[in-house]
Design a binder for these strands. Sequence first.
DNA 1: TTTTATTTTTGAACAACGTTCATTTTTTTA
DNA 2: TAAAAAAATGAACGTTGTTCAAAAATAAAA
Lengths: 205, 205
Amino acid sequence: MSVADRKAREKEALKMLILKGAKKLFIEKGIEQTTIRNIADEIDYSVGTVYVYFKDKNAILHDLHSIGFQELGGYFKELFSIEDPMERLRKMGFIYIKFALENQEMYDLMFNLKAPIEFLTNCDNEDWDEGATTFGALKETVHQCIQKEHFKGHTLEPLTFMIWSLVHGMCCLEIRQRTKGVKFTNPDTILYDGYNEFLKIIDRL
Amino acid sequence: MSVADRKAREKEALKMLILKGAKKLFIEKGIEQTTIRNIADEIDYSVGTVYVYFKDKNAILHDLHSIGFQELGGYFKELFSIEDPMERLRKMGFIYIKFALENQEMYDLMFNLKAPIEFLTNCDNEDWDEGATTFGALKETVHQCIQKEHFKGHTLEPLTFMIWSLVHGMCCLEIRQRTKGVKFTNPDTILYDGYNEFLKIIDRL
DNA sequence: TTTTATTTTTGAACAACGTTCATTTTTTTA
DNA sequence: TAAAAAAATGAACGTTGTTCAAAAATAAAA
């Protein structure tokens, strides 16, 4: 019994080692530039071993995308202590942007790359649980704002989606380099400047 | 003299033929799933010929991204006749979303894929003219709104960027399939529903 | 027209990729 | 210590983007 247990633990450990190596290389040189051979080299195993623990590259990317959501959850932790939902909403956006800028490759993987969603589709999995949960957290905060008489005349779900899109859009444009070359007056702070315009608006709602 | 002219015209024609074939396949089966060999087959030329007319795959993607901006310009044409800048701003967003939904692969290429920007970087080109021009058009409309006493207390460039991000974010989430699996009540109309929430807000500003 | 020069097109060949799987090595069990 | 099971291996396969010497087609010169 204990042998099987240890084996299971070792299997899990090696799986994590692969993911850790993959993440390191992804951050170092980009996801597209990282090959399975690179990952195998990084952790001193052969290519074949990687394929014993992961069906394909999409499976690695999906698991790493899930880890990304855990890390985003870590960033969000400090929000729990904020009572006022409007205050929490404001801060949530800032943290979201901060996470995206500090973890660009992971953010790309979580919200932009096709691989994690393709993996789910291949597994006949209709739902994107990580996304649904995170969106649910934002929706709950917006819901509380509405209960406190904010956002009069608005509909919860579309409003929440609009807010998500607003911050996501900024992060996306930045990470995919669409803010470079557009000749902003203040390119370095445009994300936070843009978000502040949003804050100015909702302060009045 | 006329021979050289004809040759130049033929060169241009073949270049366009390659782009046309590439675009067809991109729309049919996706950009990532389309190979140079596919493109060559499509237009009954060999692989080598494609490389005579384009430095690499990024060059094709960049030229096609420029064509995409021309097409977006076509969608935007009807905006010129709208006098009221607020009305024009509202409609601009709708058309932007419409373009994105009706030309998903092209939109992805224009605003998401790294290839066109990588191409510019490789050519030591700092500027992304197509993006800057389109952003400029939006900025001009927002500027006229401000002149008509709308958006009091807001700063032009960050506000414009925020609006762009809002619609881009929605299109991006949709195209990259992040709206599927999140269990929206009305997944089919969420983009327009979300944008309508934005319209409700700016109607009061 | 025939020959030479130039331009255009070709597709085999290369390195690198994701992926597979028969074989080898290691570990567990008898 | 020997047999069985599990884990790890890396050569090999099909595809990819890309290159480039050779071939084919066209233009210029004779």
